[in-house]
Design a protein around this nucleic acid. Structure first.
Length: 592
DNA sequence: TTTAGGG
DNA sequence: CCCTAAA
């Protein structure tokens, strides 16, 4: 009976720590102490943090050992999605937490750089793709029906909806070691904390939700200038079957080092007076964020420079600071017999999918949509003259519906994960199509003009939703195969979102290669990943390559989700065998 | 398009 | 993952 019960979570919104920012305590000049830090350790913690701040300039490498006493979760902070289960009393909570704190920071810097150059669109997807996971519940294999025994009894067999509300806690702490230096200026903001800025969410005539914001002038802020060679002019051709190929392209990708340099150039300056406004904004945002009832979204800070920069005329730059995005509501339906791990993945993938390619950015200026992409900001009216204080960014669904054919369970292509009872045929994730996300607080103000009138708008929440239940395929991860709207599509093409191979995928890959050998990647694809549209044969080949590499290095050097040694052994065995065969072939050839 | 490798 | 030369 219980196994027939399904839980459905409606995600009204998410708050994802897209951009690192100082914890409130840090901005308030206090030293953050991890919540789990025992009292007698607090002073030591404080000292350590202070010391880190002192050392951050010299330190060029993050000293992990120095932080080992901290739980990563504690250090990184996370945002919570809390479900309000109308059938139960204890709210369920979902956290979006950094997938990898250190790796994430590099990418965050990268995102910042890219944002500065393109639009926040890239940054969002980049950020979501791999930097965060849905977590907290330790036993990912525990079945929901066990965890929610009590709830299950009260749940409707189907169709029960848990309203999910966001609890958007600011990251407690986001920097450690040298990484702190990247964001130093974020952590050392001015003390101005008057919460006199009222932010609200408004709805445009298209039914899109947005938050108002302020744009801050860039004048004389050289840090916000954008290097043109960061432009990633990649062009991607989309095959009819959803596969991709790439035409020749241009400039080199930015190396991580360069990205960091770039970010360092772009970071805020604590001496920038305008930043006090940012900070004030932050305080307002935090206040709101603390409100359990507030539906928040993806937090972004980005900068956008004038598309036609005038060298030597920095006054013409506009600085945008987008604090957060609201994403459309998502619904996840999942059997109670599904594992916690699969629930996490479902949520994560729903978020990833929507942000990955399901949205595009719309711009609202004084309530009107700006549709002409070719206009310059000045022509549009986005300038520093202060005329327009209502500049809004929206995340709008790119497609009417986003379908997520997928298998939610760990049960993958192989039959190994037999302990999972999730029925893929009835799993579904859906996106609320008509609701656009919004950005809470890009902000505008004038440099050297500390007082800025508040911007306000009416607050509305998404009220419509539609759930799209789609039959899940037997592939592993979801294959989001958005229908690409070529017309009016953004010029720049983002890198595919990163989708680390799960263990069961690796298992399937190894199994297939054992059978087919290396060098027949198309067959491997067809055999084991036919339903995983996002895994191309090139991906599989690449994965095999990394698997071989992984198997050869010490476990300490490995990163990401650990691959069972048994699998790695099989990888090595197959690889050795195939190599041997290949060598023999070579010998035969040359011998003849 | 697919394979094979370097980036 | 990306990008491509070759096959």
């Amino acid at each position: 009976m219980v196994s027939q019960t399904r839980l459905e979570y409606g995600f009204i919104g998410y708050q994802v720590p897209v951009f690192p920012r100082a914890s409130r305590s840090a901005r308030e000049g206090e030293t953050f102490v991890p919540p789990n830090c025992k009292k007698d350790q607090q002073n030591a913690c404080k000292n350590r943090v202070l010391k880190e701040q002192e050392d951050e300039i010299q330190s060029s490498k993050c000293n992990l050992s120095d932080k080992e006493t901290y739980n990563e979760k504690t250090l990184s902070g996370y945002h919570q999605i809390r479900t309000v289960n109308k059938f139960s009393h204890a709210p369920d909570q979902f956290n979006l937490k950094p997938y990898s704190s250190l790796k994430g920071f590099d990418k965050l810097a990268n995102v910042s750089g890219r944002n500065a150059n393109h639009s926040s669109e890239l940054g969002i997807s980049s950020l979501i793709s791999g930097e965060f996971s849905v977590g907290q519940f330790e036993d990912a294999r525990a079945e929901l029906s066990i965890i929610q025994t009590v709830k299950s009894e009260t749940l409707q067999p189907t169709g029960s909806l848990d309203a999910l509300e966001m609890d958007c806690k600011p990251p407690h702490y986001f920097c450690s070691g040298s990484k702190t230096s990247l964001f130093k200026d974020w952590t050392t903001l001015g003390p101005s904390r008057r919460s006199d800025t009222i932010e609200t969410v408004s709805r445009d005539d298209n039914g899109n939700y947005m938050a108002d914001q302020r744009i801050k002038n860039l004048s004389s802020s050289r840090r916000w200038r954008v290097s043109p060679n960061l432009n990633d002019g990649k062009r991607r051709k989309i095959f009819h079957d959803g596969r991709t190929s790439y035409s020749r392209q241009r400039s080199k990708r930015i190396s991580p080092l360069k990205r960091r340099d770039f970010f360092n150039q772009c970071r805020f300056s604590g001496s920038d007076r305008g930043f006090q406004l940012d900070d004030r904004f932050n305080s307002a945002a935090d206040k709101r964020v603390d409100d359990d009832n507030y539906c928040a979204a993806i937090r972004v800070a980005s900068s956008v420079a004038s598309p036609h920069p005038h060298p030597g005329s920095r006054d013409r730059n506009v600085k945008l600071r987008i604090k957060s995005f609201k994403v459309p509501e998502l619904l996840v339906e999942i059997p109670t017999t599904a594992t916690v791990g699969s629930l996490k993945r479902s949520v994560m993938e729903a978020v990833t999918t929507v942000l990955g390619d399901g949205l595009h950015v719309g711009i609202l200026l004084q309530g009107k949509k700006v549709r002409d992409d070719s206009k310059t900001l000045i022509q549009t009216g986005i300038s520093r003259d202060g005329k327009h204080r209502n500049l809004g960014f929206m995340l709008e669904p790119r497609h009417a519906q986003i379908k997520l054919p997928r298998c939610l369970g760990e049960q993958g292509i192989t039959s190994h994960a037999t302990s999972f009872t999730l029925d893929p045929r009835t799993s579904s994730i859906s996106l609320d199509p008509p609701v656009a996300g919004c950005i809470n607080g890009a902000q505008r103000d004038h440099h050297l003009v500390p007082s800025l009138p508040n911007i306000s708008a009416s607050t509305t929440l998404p009220n419509s939703q539609s759930r799209v239940s789609v039959p899940a395929i037997s592939g592993e991860a979801l294959a989001v195969v958005p229908i690409h709207h070529r017309a009016g599509r953004r010029e720049f093409v983002q890198r595919r979102i990163r989708r680390p191979f799960s263990v069961s995928e690796v298992e399937a890959l190894v199994q297939a290669v054992e059978k087919l050998g290396t060098g027949r990647w198309r067959d491997v694809k067809l055999r084991a990943f036919d339903n995983a549209k996002h895994r191309t044969y090139v991906d599989l080949k690449d994965k095999w390559k990394t698997l071989v590499h992984t198997a050869r290095i010490s476990p300490q050097q490995r990163r990401g989700e650990p691959v069972p040694q048994e699998l790695l052994d099989r990888v090595l065995a197959v690889h050795a065998y195939r190599s041997q065969q290949q060598a023999k072939q070579q010998q035969l050839k040359s011998g003849v």
